[in-house]
Design a protein around this nucleic acid. Sequence first.
DNA 1: GTCTATAGGATGATAGAC
DNA 2: GTCTATCATCCTATAGAC
Lengths: 179, 179
Amino acid sequence: MLSAAAKQFRANGYAAVSLRAIAKAAGLTTGSMYYHFKSKEDIVGEVLFQGHLIVLDQVKATLDNIATDDHEARLRGAIKTHILCLFGEDSLPAANIRIFSQVPQEVRSGAMATRRAYEALWIGLLEQAQRAGQIRANLSVPILLPLMLGAINWTTEWSNGDEDSLETIVTELMLLIQR
Amino acid sequence: MLSAAAKQFRANGYAAVSLRAIAKAAGLTTGSMYYHFKSKEDIVGEVLFQGHLIVLDQVKATLDNIATDDHEARLRGAIKTHILCLFGEDSLPAANIRIFSQVPQEVRSGAMATRRAYEALWIGLLEQAQRAGQIRANLSVPILLPLMLGAINWTTEWSNGDEDSLETIVTELMLLIQR
DNA sequence: GTCTATAGGATGATAGAC
DNA sequence: GTCTATCATCCTATAGAC
């Protein structure tokens, strides 16, 4: 149900997707939706929240399996995981990325907390890698992060998302930031 | 009129903006719009087309004023010009970037030609800079370009666009790709 | 060129039966 | 929990007066 919504938000944007379309894709009618959610904003709010949560959890899980001092592998793993989430099957994360700025402001504010948590994770990751000499010293992490995440998030606009292409992209990103 | 449309498309996405809203912002009524355009798709098609044209012209104009062998200045100038277009006053380019993938497919196809022309300009620019040793040799221009443009285009999602911030962003991007 | 008026349909949301 | 039926409102687009 959320994933039916996410799939369409991702493909068409927030306003273009009607409750009828979501309901139909989920095998329900409009009326039934209002038993689970109290409005369209409520649905999209949940999509945003879950979307963030999924990437955050996945990246954390990836990092848990990599030695804390292998900064190259940690960076590469985090980037790869983020991008895999974007192109994943019924991607709440991708919908999140795509429609975040189209959504009514109250909804956006509600999704800010998890977003900050995710960014904090990345800041720590990049700073540690830089201290260890993995990332070039002349780069500024607070600017680098949004630029890098932007480059990654934008791939949904031009990449077809097949495994080889994604691997190439990750490699190029690593070359860009590495010492 | 186009700029009134662009401003709203940029802020709210394609589907969320009604003809009434565009007309009101342009000081007209819905009926009058149909004297100038034959449909909403027609309007957005024109916004996309003009948006591309503006960035293309601006970047070309910038490059015309920089020596052909000063690759660092040419790169920096092109990046700065692109990003200035994005944050410009009534930004058709920014609307273009923002709604390109939300627009009906026929409209998108129609806007593809100018888009390719713009990308070709950048490919040439980056390849020349790389041949001259300005861009690190281990980077692959065909992958680097969409990543870089993605990073830049995404700035509209997080930067406020004031002059100092933009300058910082351009500098960081240059550090990323330079030798 | 711009207006008013309106057609014809889609949209978010609610009420109430089962 | 899911349905049908419906409301009020909005939408794109058109017709015709000025």
